[in-house]
Amino acid sequence: MADLRTNIAGLQLCNPVMTASGTFGYGLEFQDFVNLEQIGGIIVKGTTLQPRQGNPYPRMAETAQGMLNCVGLQNKGVDYFCEHIYPQIKDIRTNMIVNVSGNSPEDYAECAARINELEHIPAIELNISCPNVKHGGMAFGTTTDGAASVVKAVREAYKKTLIVKLSPNVTSITDIALAVQDAGADAVSLINTLMGMAIDAEKRKRVLSIGTGGLSGPCVKPVALRMVYQVAHAVRIPVIGLGGISCATDAVEFLLAGASAVEIGTANFLDPAITVKVAEGINAYLDRHGFQSVKDIIGICE
């Protein structure tokens, strides 16, 4: 049995497997299938200062080895989260991390400040990369100045571990990563979804209600892996890798590319018990190759 423990800027994880925001609910939806405490970290649904209804139906289109979604950050707002969700999840003994989004740097900061008060939430993941909202979201994550402005505002309001989730819909993701590092991020996670489109040839119409959506699933993995590798080689802060991970080998590839941990997203929809299976598979890989610790393989791929 290898040592699976890893560390994200002071955050201790029992293993490097986390869940991606928006794919695992608040964890509670998956309790019948997995012991949540065997997951390194659970990143819950995107939370905003005000409640959001999200985009109209249809919000999903299946693609070859993946799917598009345009949910648009539907959530009941940070007050509801603090009052009604937090009491249900605060005693789950793993890292419960809240994904935070907003329309302006002030929005993000206020939402983050509220969550800073919650004792059992050790970190937030700042979503500056949602492709499905008109204002905020990806608008901040696609320029170095925009990304830095949000991170600076949140850094002042938020005292615990600050992870920033990056968009792949940019010319140079390393420039954005360096900008958020300089603005005070403790870690980065990447990639959010790739912006895409589906058209129904029979109906001659775009499938999704807002026309475009974010692509996820195994089809995005090579893009994600390349970006994780590039960013890990450019920044000093830890990198969390995600994008199309659906088995232990995929996860190992991200660790080898330089990720200190990984997030599993869309694969949770196909197999709700995939997280624990991936953690077990990473252990088997380490044993098979004679590594004592998962830390021994992080970033060793040249």
């Binding site: 794919t23 999200g54 999903m60 539907q74």
Partner: peptide
């Protein structure tokens, strides 16, 4: 029978507009 991805109330894709806002048909 709205189009679903997860079926567990996690992905928020299969929503129907109701008296209480968008809710997951699956959950």
């Amino acid at each position: 029978e709205n189009m679903m991805a997860c079926g567990l109330g996690a992905c928020l894709c299969c929503v129907e507009d109701t008296e209480t806002g968008n809710v997951c048909v699956c959950k």
